[in-house]
Design a binder for these strands. Structure first.
Lengths: 135, 135
DNA sequence: CTACTTGCAAACTATTTGCGTTACG
DNA sequence: CGTAACGCAAATAGTTTGCAAGTAG
């Protein structure tokens, strides 16, 4: 009956606002730990729980997305427009790719399964320019 | 100087052989816990460590792949031929899709980045037939 | 015999949660 | 004022690791 355990409405929180601002100001797809370290000087009593709870809320609000890129930890991004990720096999860096979105492939899948497809995620793997320069 | 901590060669192990057979006999993309439960009756003294260690070895050998599908736990598959995953948003089931592989999209990305792309992964999201029937 | 593999148990890491307090609306 | 959000600390979940004993080659 209850929609899991989502709140009725969200109250303003300075910590959450700053978290979103920082997340929007970087393209590095940071981890929760990185965000915590980044925010700690501003809020000396900040706790990891607060970071995680706020990330969850921001995700519920559709302002942030969680990324799995094969690590043991989660990464986050505030980009909400459709885009892909280029993941470097050497250094793990994630780079956004937004020049092209292959909406047409969903249609191809739809036509040959009984799955009701509403979206897709693509990660491209390879070696970034920096890593190639180093070897 | 040392190649991380990989072994010089792999010795035969009955546990590992059975693990691979079971993994090859299912299309359910199981978790380590599921594999452990499945193998436990055959090896009453089996430990989780053995399952994880052997999965790591099978991955190094290129016989098994680890899948991240947004869960807190890893899933594994013994399919090594290129294919995609259809992930149900309701029940989390992962279904293989192998009818079509979009090799051409790598080329499109290559031409507009300085990333040396050598492969991609696509996950399609939606609702599976079973879940649609239930609602 | 050498060193890879095992079982067991303890350790580890990232994340979540309970609780009493603070503060937004 | 009611209840969402906080900080703190303890708990959890999944996975990894150290060690002594077993075993493949």
């Amino acid at each position: 009956m209850n929609d899991n355990n989502k709140k009725n409405h969200y109250r303003y929180s300075r910590q959450r606002e700053r978290l979103l601002v920082i997340l929007r100001s970087t393209s590095s797809h940071p981890t929760a730990a990185w965000l915590y370290d980044r925010l700690k000087p501003e809020f000396p009593h900040l706790s990891p729980g607060t970071v995680y709870r706020n990330l969850t809320i921001l995700i519920e609000q559709g302002l942030v997305r969680k990324i799995d890129a094969g690590s043991t930890f989660d990464r986050f991004e505030a980009k909400t427009d459709p885009h892909y990720h280029l993941i470097c096999r050497k250094c793990g860096t994630i780079t956004d790719f937004e020049k092209r979105f292959f909406t047409e492939i969903d249609e191809e899948i739809r036509s040959s399964t009984d799955f009701a497809i509403d979206g897709h995620r693509i990660d491209f793997f390879g070696t970034c320019a920096d890593c190639r320069a180093k070897s």
